Computed example of a mutant assay.
Amino acid sequence: MNLSTSINEKAALIWAIADKLTGVYKPHEYGEVILPLTVIRRFDCILADTKEAVLEKYDEVKTLPMRDVLLRKVSGYEFYNTSKYTFEKLLDDPDNIEENFHDYLNGFSENVRDIIEKFKFDGHIDTMANKGILYIVIKEFTSTRANLHPDIISNLEMGYIFEEIIRRFSESHNEDAGQHYTPREVIRLMVNILFYDDSSTLSGKNIARTIYDPACGTGGMLSVAEEYLHELNSSTELMSFGQELNDQTFAICKADMLIKGNNADFIKDGNTLSDDQFEGQKFDYIISNPPFGREWKNEKRVVEDEAKRGFAGRFGAGLPAASDGQMLFLMTAISKMKEPRDGGSRIAIIHNGSPLFTGDAGSGPSDIRQYILESDLLEAIVALPI
């Protein structure tokens, strides 16, 4: 069985749990329950091996100001849970499942609670409890099909599973799954282009590099870049930075980074166009698949104010039509490039055909293209099959 088939099967098994939501939720709402529960269950499985040790240590240090550091050390991760409950133990008391589940969630370290909060999940807990299905759904997540222990499902596979669940969620919404998902084959091509001929990164010892995605989604591009680089040179460290607008995909990305041991604080939430969380920062590599055809009218005032700053801001080259903001992401990426004297940067970014042709001479898009070409920033355009 190849990886793709295996991932689809595992994602399908988890998605099948949504059958227990029938009647209480409409099909397009299933993802609002399945996604956060999958993330929480992943944390639950990961922490299972050190759960008892963490509880013992918590009894010793719960009044100490340094307890957070000590509990992380015992858990073996940058997160932990101090509740006596696990998914399995929650099943021992069906009559108090709602109260105990809240206790369990509140037992997580603050960084995990912040992630769960982004899912706006509390209301769904209350709904499932009131409709009598909370116990049933949690029980399903303790079944073999939902065993998300890292010995069973690797971090790489888990990333694929999240994306497949989101794809199914998007289909039930009649949304374009492409706004959340980029095929891994395409990402590997982009990463190959990024790292091409970078001999110090590919063959150097103990090299550290940075990579940034201004529309990072679930973090798939950042994860593939890190995975691929480690295949080529295991001694190189790639530090991932990203910003994401959608709360659910941001939460999944941050959870993935936390679980892998990366610095999850480098993943920021918010609107990149109107609230750049990495203002003034430069990166070695930039990779992205920004949204196509998305209006930026809501960000118009802030973007235009920044454009007035010229090249002291991100949008000095010009502004595209308000009906499509993808070139704003392109200029954001360019603004994050290091100067050649500092080692320079490389960008791999996906667009549809619009930025190549839209706008007459003298228009914003035309001025942006002129700036890119005259600054000798364009190395290649790769046409992908539809």
Rank of each mutant, 00 (worst) to 15 (best):
I115D: 06
S234K: 12
C45A: 12
P150E: 01
S354K: 13
D176Q: 11
G325K: 08
I350R: 09
I252T: 04
M221P: 09
V302T: 13
I7F: 02
N2D: 00
Y104A: 08
F329M: 06
L373V: 12
L384C: 11
M257T: 04
A380K: 14
L156F: 00
D68M: 08
S354F: 03
G280E: 01
F278R: 09
E226W: 02
G310E: 07
E304K: 15
E244R: 04
A215P: 05
K131L: 02
H149V: 07
E164R: 14
K205T: 14
I136Y: 04
L148T: 01
H102A: 04
L194D: 04
T63S: 14
G242C: 08
D95H: 13
L13E: 11
D342P: 11
I334K: 07
I347W: 09
G219N: 06
V186S: 03
D114E: 12
Q243F: 09
L356S: 00
F162D: 03
I368E: 05
S154N: 02
T127C: 08
V382P: 05
N206E: 14
E110L: 11
E56K: 15
L71W: 06
V303K: 14
D19C: 02
N106S: 11
N174P: 04
T127Q: 12
T86R: 09
N298L: 10
P94N: 10
R113P: 05
G359Y: 09
E99T: 15
Y77C: 09
K268G: 00
S240I: 15
P290F: 04
S170I: 06
S143G: 10
V224D: 01
F250W: 15
I166T: 10
R346P: 07
F87G: 06
K338C: 05
G178Y: 02
G31Q: 09
H102L: 10
E157C: 05
E98Y: 14
Y58E: 02
R346Y: 07
G76A: 03
L148P: 08
F162K: 06
C216F: 08
M158E: 00
Y135D: 02
E98S: 00
F315L: 11
G313W: 07
F266R: 13
S240N: 14
L229S: 06
I187Q: 09
I125F: 05
I115G: 03
L55P: 01
Q179P: 00
V224E: 12
T182S: 04
I7Q: 04
D275H: 11
L356F: 09
D367Y: 07
G107L: 13
E9H: 13
